[in-house]
Design a protein around this nucleic acid. Structure first.
Lengths: 105, 105
DNA sequence: TGAACATATTAGAATATTCTAATATATAAA
DNA sequence: TTTATATATTAGAATATTCTAATATGTTCA
């Protein structure tokens, strides 16, 4: 059986790719089809499909066919919560660097 | 200049390794020296140092010498917040699987 | 100073990830 | 059915990550 840290790392590995993060950010409010995602990003259909397959396998997204299209959604809203906290870490960093470079208070 | 998604992915890459997660979890309450971390885990000194160097470079931890030892700490408490949310995702998964396998309510 | 301790760095083999190009599969519409 | 549309899969080259072993650097204390 797998270590808890390994399971944890496997989930975070999903978030360690910029394309997957962009997809997750697009899915945060609306479910979207592969075509939708290809249109909204600059990435190839094959590549989007591959990244969706990885995220589906890891249980981060799930999919459902609707007619011609397959719609993906995020399985657990806490994934977006984690996403946003890391964004906060990033913006706090920017704020701190501004202080350093421009002496802003 | 780097895309926001790339910066985000770079932070998450730090969390995508089980040893680094174990280190971060040990640092959640107390700052610890490299020796402390080597003793509390089963990993080699070189390996712990390497992982600390990666995390320091990415701004996840910082270090300060105290006599013979160098103590590491987590730079932003939100990193632990994100850590814990992913743990929640994991435990919710376990709960759901229990439902499936044992029919618990 | 020099021995002992604490930590960092390097090289390199093994492994994993990522993208592109080509192709396969599945559904819908004509 | 064929044709068009939507999505998935595969192979493989390029790149990145990870660990081990060896060694270097830095600090303290006798």
């Amino acid at each position: 059986m797998k270590d808890i840290y390994e399971l944890h790392a496997e989930i975070c590995k999903v978030f360690s790719n910029p394309i997957r993060l962009e997809i997750l950010n697009l899915l945060r409010n609306n479910d979207m089809s592969v075509t939708d995602l290809v249109e909204k990003t600059k990435f190839s259909q094959a590549n989007i499909s591959q990244h969706l397959a990885i995220m589906k396998y890891k249980g981060i997204v799930s999919s459902k066919r609707k007619g011609k299209n397959i719609y993906y959604k995020i399985t657990n809203p806490k994934i977006i919560k984690a996403f946003d906290i890391i964004r906060e870490v990033l913006s706090e960093r920017v704020r701190k660097n501004k202080k350093i470079f421009f002496g802003g208070k």
